[in-house]
């Protein structure tokens, strides 16, 4: 579904990603984990055309999407739930969701949009209760659900999420990860970027570990969770924090 090949991204003189290659197969949940500043967000921005890579290629279903532009990439079925939710604060929850369906309207599927809206509001009952409220008045967890819902309204075949658990209470984090599993079961391919390595790998099939702009480890989620390297670098060191964040 998605192939990233030897991607280099730099902001001015600072190189953020060096030779990053990865792939996501149809139906998979793939997690990219790594510490702050490892380049996870930049990787997603490069895939969605928000930053221009210096070298390398990004292919969606075999076609290069490097020169395509963000809006068209979304139209091709690849949506990103950005870091920090980025909802439209002065528009209502309902309008936020309907704006997410823009590409669906463009495909001439207005009738489906109405059904999708009901489906999303059913998936996140709290959004249904607050559908007339301004997006900016929601709590962090509710905003995250709105951001996910908004991305789903475009009916993506590949959903990418950037740190969906960031800054949320443990119970809410658990709920968000449950939602991501549900989305995957419904047939959507998921690329999940997380600092919360344990939580992300628990719902993923495969994972990559990004460290200072390079992929240093990759493998099946179980192998990564069990690997000594991972334990030391990401799971062991933060073990107290991790268990506090994901009460499983």
């Amino acid at each position: 579904m998605l192939t990233v090949r030897t991607l280099d991204v730099a902001y001015g003189a600072v190189t953020v990603l060096r030779g990053v290659s990865l792939h996501v197969k149809e139906g998979e949940v793939v997690a990219i984990v790594g510490a702050n500043g490892a380049g996870k967000t930049t990787l997603l921005k490069a895939i969605t055309g928000l930053v221009r890579p210096r070298r390398g290629d990004v292919r969606l279903r075999g076609e290069s999407i490097l020169e395509v532009g963000t809006a068209r990439i979304v139209a091709r079925g690849c949506s990103l739930v950005p870091e920090g939710r980025q909802i439209f604060g002065d528009l209502s929850v309902r309008d936020n969701l309907l704006l997410g369906a823009h590409v669906q309207y463009r495909r001439g599927k207005a009738a489906e949009v109405r059904a999708d809206l009901e489906r999303i509001l059913g998936m996140f009952p709290i959004l249904g209760k607050r559908s007339g409220q301004l997006g900016g008045t929601l709590s962090g967890g509710e905003q995250q659900m709105l951001a996910i819902g908004r991305a789903l309204m475009a009916r993506p075949t590949l959903l990418m999420l950037d740190e969906p658990s960031m800054g949320l209470a443990p119970l809410v984090v658990k709920e968000i990860f449950n939602v991501i599993s549900t989305i995957s079961l419904a047939g959507c391919t998921v690329l999940l970027v997380e600092q919360n390595a344990r939580g992300a790998l628990k719902i993923a099939h495969r994972g990559y570990v990004l460290e200072t702009g390079r992929i240093v480890l990759e493998g099946s989620a179980e192998d990564l969770l069990a690997s000594r390297e991972m334990q030391r670098a990401y799971l062991g060191r933060d073990v107290n924090l991790e268990t506090a964040r994901v009460t499983t």
Binding site: T70, L80, Q86, F88, G89, L99, G100, A154
Partner: peptide, 21 residues
């Protein structure tokens, strides 16, 4: 009009919704 407000409120998010910013 709503699309223009969305674009004003958050241009990156608007382009991630597929809006022609």
């Amino acid at each position: 009009g709503k699309q223009m407000r969305a674009c004003a409120s958050n241009r990156v998010a608007a382009s991630l919704c597929g809006l022609p910013t």
